[in-house]
Write a protein that binds this DNA or RNA. Structure first.
Lengths: 236, 236
DNA sequence: AAGATCATATTTGTCAGACAAATGACAAGT
DNA sequence: ACTTGTCATTTGTCTGACAAATATGATCTT
């Protein structure tokens, strides 16, 4: 959610990020043995205690594997928790290749139409209202940033309305990763197309409990979003 | 993947599991402050060092939040990494309610049809062969366990063939959680319906690069699987 | 010479105690 | 009533030590 300020975090957080990024970005290759704890701790100017706390977290994310005497090794990417928010963000920071963005967009194309269908069936009145509030915020948005923020809230509200926390959790992970690219693209796209009418169509379909209508509207919305990204890419 | 043997793991692993399960199962309610580190460490008969390593991991999973002076608090479930393999498995251990299984099945219904479509478009020859190998293993399966294992390999091979590690990662998390319920159900279902023909249809559709055929076959497969679970439930 | 067995050194795992930094709570002053 | 400052408590970090595991190489056996 909030952008991480790089300066005043705890030490282990910095260590986690530094090593994690090195692994995800490919600086540390899979199978490669890392230096011993003592050595690595000294190298990073932290105590072994702090380093170990960081290593445990990285192990929990599936990035490394540690055995006594052998030391630590970078695990094969197949074992990484790709859906971990940190892993994903490190990957975004390191690998802004179109290939990866495509994978994220593909996830979104799978999740969101299914999500609006579920939301149309199961949303509560309060959840519907939350979606409507985000929609209003988009209409009143003074600038692009406010619009993007409200848009995110809109999609988030829809996902919450599915009443399936696995689904909303998945979306939040994917979406925060996509948001960076999205904002980037929106900024560069001169003739950016605000897809408010489609948002309203989605909202209405959810309100009237029409799963199929909601899904088709959402699909066309995503198609536009994709087009916007392409446009931004060409101009950037 | 492998079942965790409870006995000889490292201390912090045990602490992680114990606290994590307590949180996910609801014994420790959200917002509730945990005892201080020193006290908690003594209470669990481990050093503060070990306890802290465990707490960092739990914090990385979004389960707890720690601030100086205030201590630790259990975070609201909205912040949990529901897609974390551990969180999910703890939840399965603690909450075998039908409600939760429904959510898992819903995820599967969303993921798999989309996945086979992607696989039909992008699979490599090697990936196709892996799917076929799993299919053969299912045909030759001597007992239910072997059949279930091969079935899992089949679905896994399909997901890998999407060439989208986010998708396969998601599936592996959901599926391992579902597997426990699935095997349980299969055991109790006397007239269990082996859906091999449908598996073959899926395979053929992927081989011939027919996304839509693959998707419909997969959908009917999942529908049968769901019916089997219901059947098992009634008889168990 | 080849293989099995064992000793050892190295590395992670765990522990205990200390101090630093942050911060909520409360007292004091305006 | 509000601000300010002190204080105590809790987490954050460091250090050094020992236990447990195990890869490596030496030694012994065949």
């Amino acid at each position: 959610m909030a952008l991480k300020a790089g300066g005043t975090r705890n030490l282990h957080a910095r260590v986690i990020e530094e090593i994690g990024e090195s692994i995800v970005s490919g600086v540390l290759r899979p199978g490669e043995p890392l230096p011993g704890e003592s050595q690595l701790a000294e190298q990073m100017s932290v105590s072994r205690t702090v380093l170990r706390e960081a290593l445990k977290v990285l192990a929990a994310k599936g990035l490394i594997e540690t055995r006594q005497k052998t030391g630590m090794r970078v695990r094969d990417p197949a074992f990484w928790n790709h859906l971990d928010a940190d892993v994903l963000s490190w990957r975004c920071a390191a690998m802004p290749t179109e290939d990866f963005v495509e994978k994220l967009v593909e996830m979104r194309e799978i999740i969101e139409p299914a999500a609006v269908m579920a939301a149309a069936r199961r949303r509560s009145p309060e959840q519907l209202e939350a979606i409507g509030a985000a929609l209003d915020a988009m209409e009143d948005a003074p600038d692009l940033d406010a619009w993007a923020a409200a848009d995110l809230r809109f999609h988030d509200a829809v996902l919450v309305a599915t009443n399936n926390e696995l689904l909303s959790s998945l979306f939040s992970v994917v979406e925060t990763a996509l948001a960076t690219f999205f904002i980037m693209s929106a900024r560069t796209a001169k003739n950016f197309k605000y897809s408010l009418p489609q948002h309203r169509t989605v909202y209405e379909a959810i309100r009237r409990r029409r799963p199929n209508e909601a899904a088709t509207a959402m699909r066309s919305m995503i198609a536009d979003s994709r087009a916007n990204m392409r446009k931004g890419k060409r101009q950037g």
